[in-house]
Nucleic acid binder design. Sequence first.
DNA 1: ACCTGAACACCGTTCAAGT
DNA 2: ACCTGAACACCGTTCAAGT
Lengths: 233, 233
Amino acid sequence: MSTVRSREPLTRERIVNAAITVADAEGIAAVTMRRLGTTLDREAMALYYHIPSKDALLVALIDDLLGRLVRESVGIDHDDWRDTVRARCLAARALMLRHPWAPGLIAAQQETPVAAWPVYELLVATLTAAGFDDDLSHRAIHSLGSMLFGFTSELFQPAATAPEPEPDAAAMRAMAEHMPNLSRMAATVAHDADGALSMCDTQAEFDFTLGLLLDGLENARTRRVTASRPGSG
Amino acid sequence: MSTVRSREPLTRERIVNAAITVADAEGIAAVTMRRLGTTLDREAMALYYHIPSKDALLVALIDDLLGRLVRESVGIDHDDWRDTVRARCLAARALMLRHPWAPGLIAAQQETPVAAWPVYELLVATLTAAGFDDDLSHRAIHSLGSMLFGFTSELFQPAATAPEPEPDAAAMRAMAEHMPNLSRMAATVAHDADGALSMCDTQAEFDFTLGLLLDGLENARTRRVTASRPGSG
DNA sequence: ACCTGAACACCGTTCAAGT
DNA sequence: ACCTGAACACCGTTCAAGT
């Protein structure tokens, strides 16, 4: 184990890695200065020699993660820009699924984390090469928004593995009465979804939304190119 | 002031209102049990007689807000389903702008807050009346996702009113070098944006994304209706 | 250079006790 | 029924002091 070298001086990097390990295993709430201290075989106060504050540490976690995302994304490049963007968004999603605390942490920042800029840069480069003008690229950045970072559709997790208390008959009747459309839809879709992993197969939802946005943007691009050709208006 | 009746017994409602007032004025972090206690002229522990826990209180804030949203939304109904959904999303956005702590709080829940279901029900009712089948309604719920609740595009606030330290020449050169596309785009768009409130006029971005999604869904609907007519395949 | 002990000002929450 | 005092087990952080 890493105990062998654990009495080496702490580094920012070791602290970040420890924090990610703890967050992955027990959730972001378990990442406290005291907890990291014991994990690293140090008193909590020792961390402050290497890191200015807990908030700074959390930003460092984001930077680490998005850094990895960018290094993955630069290698993704297909003929159709939509394939490129789609693949990068899916890579982001896969990364976030391995670190479920990350989306919430990223969303909690109110300033853009510096590590997010290279993600945008990569996107604009791809769009520009595909014939987007700057205005449409700008809109695209906003539209694709959180899909670039691998979240959005999954605002609310479907209770994960938690054993939901099964709804009694009275609750179901109340639901059917007050929310007839939702009830019917749930029944229909659940019935149709034999092939999917669950009624809400978030991977499929992610793909669908991404498709709407990508196709919409492609249409906007085509329209502009056509409009700017003389004699086509 | 409300001091006159403030020695009346506390109620859940009064606590929720106090919490919203504090959150609006000083941010959600200022909402602590002790703070609410002093605001309500009680000890913090008194709150536990009316509310099981702080987490439950935060859920109550969400329920209060989304309840208001639903009551507003039921009154919104236009001929074109897109106008209806757009107007409801904009109402949600306007509400969230008045309570900036709400999106983060909602996003932090990992189970769907009960108050969210009526929002979905209303949407599915509208879509069904417009000719959506249940599967497409289900997809629409996911696609429109957070737009229904008034956020998404605004993952990162544009630093609000905070006086950004103006970037020195070296920083700008570094930016131009490492992120050429982003730099150029920023320059172009800023130049074009004389009419808008700022380079990132989030209202406009919100509208644009919403338009992409609505038009994409309308296309999907039309395609299905056409496909299900005999002799059209 | 790197870390610790003691201390400060906070948290949410429980529970017996008061009126 | 409604509230308080005292207490518990936590937080992040500072700073003088140790090696």
